[in-house]
Simulated assay, not measured.
Amino acid sequence: MTTRTMTADEGGTEDFTTGEGLRALLRRLHEAGPDAWRTDPVAARLMAFAAEKYEALARKHGLDPWEAATAAFDVMRTRSAREAVDPWGVVTHAVRITCIFEERAQGLLCSVHQARRPHVSVFHDAERLSERDNPLDDYHSAFHTTDTTPDDEHSAEGHTSAVSAVEDAIAFMTLLGWPAAAARAGVEHVCQALARAGSRQSAFEVLRRDRHAQALLDLDGEAWSALLKTLLGNQAPGMSATTAGRGILLRLLIGETLPVLLHDDDLVLTVALAAPGSGRS
Rank of each mutant, 00 (worst) to 15 (best):
R96N: 04
T98W: 11
C99D: 03
I100E: 00
F101D: 01
F101G: 02
F101S: 05
E102N: 05
R104A: 09
R104Q: 07
A105E: 01
G107K: 05
L108K: 02
L109W: 13
H113M: 13
Q114W: 12
P118W: 01
V120S: 01
D125N: 11
E127P: 00
E127K: 11
L129P: 00
D133P: 02
N134H: 06
P135R: 15
P135K: 10
L136D: 07
D137L: 04
H140V: 08
S141A: 08
S141H: 11
H144C: 02
H144Y: 14
T148S: 13
T148P: 06
T149S: 15
P150H: 07
P150E: 15
D152T: 12
E153P: 04
H154A: 15
H154W: 12
S155W: 14
S155L: 13
S155Y: 14
E157F: 15
G158E: 06
T160P: 01
T160E: 10
S161N: 09
A162Q: 04
V163M: 14
S164F: 02
E167K: 11
E167G: 10
A169L: 14
M173W: 06
T174A: 15
L175D: 06
L176K: 03
W178A: 03
P179S: 09
P179G: 05
A183R: 00
R184S: 08
R184G: 01
G186Y: 02
V187L: 11
H189C: 11
H189K: 12
H189V: 07
V190L: 02
C191M: 11
Q192C: 05
Q192S: 13
Q192M: 07
A193R: 10
A195E: 09
A197C: 09
A197R: 11
A197E: 14
G198N: 04
S199C: 01
R200Y: 02
R200S: 05
R200T: 06
A203E: 03
